[in-house]
Design a protein around this nucleic acid. Structure first.
Length: 89
DNA sequence: TAGTTGACCGGAA
DNA sequence: ATTCCGGCCAACT
């Protein structure tokens, strides 16, 4: 049986990021892999940048290099949110 | 349809 | 350690 729901990669990324709990952080590569394409790490960043939904803690997604990465409201804000949730940088 | 964009990654100098 | 460059992909125009 098959349901032809075919969510776009964007929807998948949102779903993955939405599942991130407080104090947890994933890298863009991890998100891309969970979304179905580990090669689409670039697309993930592009997609999240277009996301303005507060229901999606996109600030919990960081780079694989251990750096924070960009954020809609500024990297400083992203760092602050992570530290506030107990994430060790 | 094809071209451009972009919150990245990894390797090389 | 930092900086530069190319590659890879989905969505938008």
């Amino acid at each position: 049986m098959k349901s032809s729901k075919e969510k776009t990669f964007t929807e998948k990324v949102y779903d993955v990021v939405r599942k991130i709990r407080k104090g947890k952080v994933l890298t863009y590569k991890e998100v891309a892999e969970k979304a179905g394409n580990r090669n689409a790490v670039r697309a993930v960043g592009t997609i999240l940048s277009k996301n303005f939904d507060n229901n999606i803690p996109c600030h919990r997604v960081i780079r694989s290099d251990g750096k924070i990465g960009q954020y809609n409201r500024g990297e400083s804000e992203k760092i602050r949110l992570l530290k506030k949730e107990g994430v060790i940088l």
